[in-house]
Write a protein that binds this DNA or RNA. Structure first.
Lengths: 214, 214
DNA sequence: TTCAAAAATGAGTGATTACTCACTCAACAA
DNA sequence: TTGTTGAGTGAGTAATCACTCATTTTTGAA
């Protein structure tokens, strides 16, 4: 996925694209500015006209992710589910959105990999990640969750954060299992497994005691 | 958490401990052998008597994780749940085990962070991770899952892999949310949130349709 | 106590790093 | 045509890197 324009010169876009590619391949520390320059087709000095330091390139990637990618990844499509009433519609809607998100994650994975990795090591990166993406995602999901509780489709006993995290968690590990460990395992039928994942998210993995209502 | 002995000289242990500390702090590429040596209290040359290359140190950490840490992280305590019959016992057992796992993850987090990060970038590391830890974990959980299905406590419609992944996923994101983003958020009561997480794992976040049995 | 083998050392090596800066040159104004 | 500007350049710089190896220190059997 290419970096779209946004008050950004052609050169700057080229450099960011190259930086994402190289850093995602080797990791931030192992990626050299000389290789980024080569990949971008500019002189090494040019990079430092647009980014004061190498770390500024990382910040640029992160801000870009927040501005351009976070919105479709988090918000887009939720409304589609939000205004369904039937339970089967809900399930189908969730499936659609999850499939869609899998595709988006796939497309922006290089960028995500960089951000996730660096967030594990640097509190300042984590702070930006939280401010630009996570807090916004929580906000959006809280609204959605409230709507679902009012419709009697989601449990009010489970907080929005826990519920949202459960969805995200299952989605992420589904992705990791398929895309990172895919070569090592015998992959099940995608749709069948996704159905099970949704089942686990919606109704859990345990059999409820007889007579239990919730 | 310190590296325990296992056919390992005092020096080698010291170097591994220092390597884990330094690499976990800065990342593998940014960690220098000179700093690892300083932290270990040995000369830089000594490191290369025990590890042929820097990458061998990483391999050493990974193998150590597989040999010593994976077992308690994955297997230990499952039997405690396995031989409970009551449903409330099951819930309490899961809670105990999850709490215990949170503590273990906390203790080995430096090591985990290194392995997870490098696994994201290198297929060969991923392969070792799969062979030494994941495949073993799947094996253990499959046995547990089968037992639970036979007791009528877990759904047979959801595969062991999906069910186990759901538990792991919720546990991991619970940890990440609390320990990495803890400073940025207002933390709920730990036990209350953990109860909700278990609820989400066991019975899902959606309200089942009236008349539904599973 | 003696001495050979093993372990440990740290200065040295060539390669690579992020970053600088004196310079080039295309584009436009006067 | 001449002068001015600033984006773009890439050789240069000091620092740092992983790794080597000649030398010193430690060890333990005789």
């Amino acid at each position: 996925m290419q970096v779209p324009d946004l008050k950004m010169s052609e050169k700057e876009k080229k450099i960011l694209d190259a930086a994402i590619a190289v850093i995602s391949e080797k990791g931030f520390s192992a990626a050299s500015t000389s290789e980024i320059a080569r990949q971008a087709g500019v002189a090494e000095g040019t990079i430092f006209r647009y980014f004061k330091t190498k770390k500024d390139i990382l910040r640029g990637i992160l801000i870009h992710l927040g501005n351009v990618i976070a919105e479709p990844l988090v918000v887009y499509g939720l409304k589609k589910i939000l205004y369904q009433d039937g339970r089967e519609d809900l399930r189908a809607g969730i499936k659609l959105v999850l499939k869609d998100r899998m595709a988006i994650i796939d497309a922006v994975f290089p960028m995500l990999r960089i951000v996730i990795t660096e967030a594990m090591y640097h509190e300042d990166i984590r702070q930006i990640l939280y401010d630009k993406i996570i807090s916004r995602a929580v906000e959006v999901f809280e609204e959605y969750h409230l709507e679902m509780v009012e419709k009697g489709l989601m449990k009010k006993e489970i907080d929005a954060v826990v519920a949202g995290r459960s969805i995200l968690a299952n989605l992420v590990l589904f992705f990791v299992y398929r895309n990172l460990f895919g070569p090592m395992i015998q992959l099940d039928d995608y749709d069948r497994e996704l159905d099970q994942v949704i089942d686990a998210i919606m109704h859990g993995i345990a059999i409820p005691a007889v007579g239990d209502k919730k």
